[in-house]
């Protein structure tokens, strides 16, 4: 036996091994882009916010009842913006949770396969509509409609923005809830049916309790969606900071404030420029809490059965 072919085969194997290693490293580094993005977000938000909190005390930020960062006598009370965010989100959830849950129960437990196959694509299309278009719809269709019922309603208001935002979140909540309910094993339902339960009794007394952590995850992720929604409120709820929990008022949310400031030409490094990062950090922390809660709840319903 000559040495050459064996040496050649060994060299080939070595180069093949090296190539495999390089590919694995490339794939891993792509996967790390997601981690780098999170690190980047936290780094940028914290870096600019630290400068901001060097000039404004954190106690004022959390307790001041005015938000006037661009006035000669500036006030930085985040609650003013937070009130708009919370009010519009609450209205949205009042629409999205009942409608989304009903829809999910109906599609998962009652509807025939054909209805389900038609309804799900429609809901997906509804979820695919750009939020700026929903904003346009809220301002020019829903607000005039509400004015027929309640003539004193101002042109910009939290109510119409919240309602439209609710419709936007419906497909989101219904699809996660439906997934959770379909993950409930058939044997549980069959047990209840054997005891003479109707479909509604099975749905409400067996399926919903069994899928509860999934439903909770859907609601929490819905809240996070509503809190972070930007264009609907920026277009339809107005840009005036206003400490209010009244749905018929106009008020800026955290997100609308960021859009408003970014649209103007604030010099890089000014206090006005840093406020949007402080506002953004507040928003990020708020949604982070909800997202992590939703993540662990969803993981639980996947593992239960």
């Amino acid at each position: 036996m000559s040495q050459a072919p064996i040496a050649g085969r060994l060299a080939y194997r070595r180069s093949r091994h090296i190539r495999e290693q390089i590919i694995e490293w490339l794939l891993l580094s792509s996967a790390l882009v997601a981690v780098a993005t999170t690190v980047g977000i936290v780094f940028i938000l914290v870096k600019e916010s630290l400068v901001f909190f060097g000039q404004v005390s954190i106690i004022d930020f959390l307790t001041d009842s005015q938000w006037t960062p661009l006035f000669s006598d500036p006030h930085f009370g985040i609650w003013v913006l937070l009130s708009g965010t919370l009010t519009s989100s609450a209205i949205a959830l009042c629409v999205a949770i009942p409608v989304g849950t009903t829809l999910a129960i109906y599609l998962s437990e009652f509807a025939s396969a054909r209805v389900r196959e038609t309804a799900k694509p429609i809901l997906e299309l509804l979820a695919g509509i750009p939020t700026i278009v929903f904003g346009y719809f809220a301002l020019f269709f829903v607000t005039p409609l509400l004015k027929i019922i309640y003539p004193e309603l101002p042109g910009f208001n939290l109510l119409s923005a919240g309602l439209v935002m609710g419709v936007m979140i419906v497909p989101y909540i219904s699809s996660i809830s439906e997934d959770a309910m379909r993950a409930v094993p058939m044997s549980l339902r069959e047990g209840a049916y054997a005891m003479g339960a109707t479909r509604l009794q099975v749905a409400l007394n067996v399926v919903v309790p069994a899928a509860f952590s999934g439903l909770a995850a859907a609601y929490i992720l819905g809240i996070s969606r509503a809190v972070g929604e930007t264009m609907i409120v920026a277009v339809a709820a107005g840009m005036q900071p206003n400490l209010t929990f009244n749905p018929t008022d106009q008020a800026a949310t955290i997100t609308a404030y960021i859009v408003q400031v970014a649209k103007g030409d604030l010099p890089h490094g000014s206090v006005g420029y840093q406020t949007i990062f402080a506002a953004g950090l507040t928003l990020f922390l708020l949604t982070l809490v909800f997202n992590l809660m939703g993540y662990f709840l969803r993981k639980r319903f996947r593992e239960e059965y």
Binding site: A34, L45, S224, G228, H268, F284, T287, L288, L292
Partner: peptide
């Protein structure tokens, strides 16, 4: 696990926060 939890969280980060990331990092 870290990568997975990151991807899950990123999917829920409001889009405007990505705008702030881009403003601070890419633009400035």
């Amino acid at each position: 696990a870290l990568i997975e939890i990151n991807i899950n969280n990123l999917a829920g980060v409001p889009s405007i926060v990505y705008g702030l990331l881009a403003l601070g990092l890419f633009v400035h």
